[in-house]
Design a protein around this nucleic acid. Structure first.
Lengths: 244, 244
DNA sequence: GACAGGAATTGGTAAACGCCAGCATGACCG
DNA sequence: CGGTCATGCTGGCGTTTACCAATTCCTGTC
């Protein structure tokens, strides 16, 4: 175990991140079963040669991820496995891939344009600012599952042609990673157009999701409205206790 | 400002929590506007007499809460205000109260019973284990908005009579605070019964939410199925970037 | 054998120190 | 006038040391 945890001298990434990664790997490999305890922080100190603060920082990271939990006076334990990935700012493609499904996309439109009143307000830009307008139909197993309409200020997406399936990947490569956001979910009935695309009856149920994501400094990045087939899609989300 | 941040000597709560609370109060009072920077960590050190680690721990807490964000080489800034609290494990009552609405509850049933097959599986208990079964209609502004059916192992709710409006408050007072959970949201159509309770047409849209919450060690605490009026309720949730 | 008490072990908080890495500003030079 | 480089700010990482608080377990006593 010692060797698995030790940091690489030639790696310049912070020690505590290396340790966290090593611990995570060791746990995922089945080195420690859920419910069982990690070595104590002081033991880890000796095993890795790192200071206790560093050990604790690594452990804290894994606790944030939900992989571990602590019990004062007792130890640090591997949390029970929870399979699902959660709704924590991941796009449709990432979601699907993680589930092992193969996502498909049909582009409906992908152009630069000017925002509507509502979109400009949401994105906190003027109505004359250029935006990228992205309309897609999401497929899962070959069937249409969702209709998405994303609006992004043009400066975050300088190259529409280079856009792959994942909007977030494109944003990230430009250094515009959204880190916070807000999402509004409601149940609704399919419009005739939607019913046509989904090949379902009119007035079938659909899940409407409206999402606004922001950079760390609060700048809105992406305003997306989607409709999901209600009979095929469950929106699953992890919950975490609120701070305090 | 110095005085507002200084810790109280007679208070035994950890220094960094006191500092975090003081900073939060100072910011909420408008002492620092969104977008503006906090004093540097080293300045705060001098102002409070605390060590830098303590300062950083306090700041990290507020960052977790989404109140601050850091920019290396530049400073620590107050994050732009986001009004909504999010879906981070809060109940209907808390949600409503935070929005300034007055929640109302009509109890449909509130008894001890045995779980169904599905419930027992979800809660990871045997079908012979006693559970509390709580059926409520949620009101907002006097109108029925949601129908909730919660199932909780009896040992977490020894006193059904003492149960107020908030299930989570009752669980918390027994030391059984749920800290993680999973939620499944889907769009669906109202059943005749639901349509009756909500006074809406049959086949109107409803939002169905199925929620399973757990203690830190993974023990399931609460399994709840709810139906919300689709035309009246938007499920709003905050997003956070995933770790790493 | 059951219980009370205490020691050892675990995580929790806090200090003081040092150095690194990104950023902004202003002085300097072309 | 404009670009560039140095400098001094910011947060980011890591070590050592110390003591507190909850838990566990063993030990001695009744």
């Amino acid at each position: 175990m010692r060797e698995k945890l030790a940091a690489r001298a030639d790696d310049s990434t912070p020690l505590y991140l290396q340790l966290a990664a090593n611990l995570r790997r060791h746990i995922n490999d089945g080195g420690i079963d859920p419910g069982n305890a990690l070595p104590s922080e002081r033991d880890l100190m000796e095993m890795t040669g790192m200071s206790r603060v560093t050990i604790r920082k690594a452990i804290e990271k894994l606790i944030e991820e939900g992989l571990l939990f602590r019990k004062q006076g007792s130890g640090t334990f591997v949390a029970p496995r929870i399979e699902a990935p959660g709704s924590i700012l991941s796009g449709f493609s990432e979601d699907a891939r993680r589930r092992g499904d193969s996502p498909g996309v049909i582009w409906m439109f992908r152009t630069y344009a000017t925002p509507t009143d509502e979109e400009a307000t949401a994105l906190e830009i003027s109505q004359t600012t250029s935006v990228a307008r992205l309309g897609r139909v999401r497929l899962l197993g070959g069937e249409p599952l969702a209709i998405e309409h994303a609006v992004v200020p043009a400066r975050f997406l300088p190259n529409l042609s280079e856009l792959g399936d994942s909007l977030y990947a494109a944003l990230g490569s430009g250094g515009f990673n959204p880190v916070t956001g807000q999402q509004r979910i409601r149940a609704s009935l399919a419009t005739p157009t939607e019913a046509g695309i989904f090949s379902i009856r009119q007035n079938s149920e659909v899940l409407r999701i409206e999402r606004l994501t922001r950079l760390a400094d609060g700048t809105p990045v992406e305003f997306t409205r989607s409709a999901y087939r209600g009979d095929r899609y469950d929106f699953v989300s992890e919950l975490r206790c609120p701070p305090d």
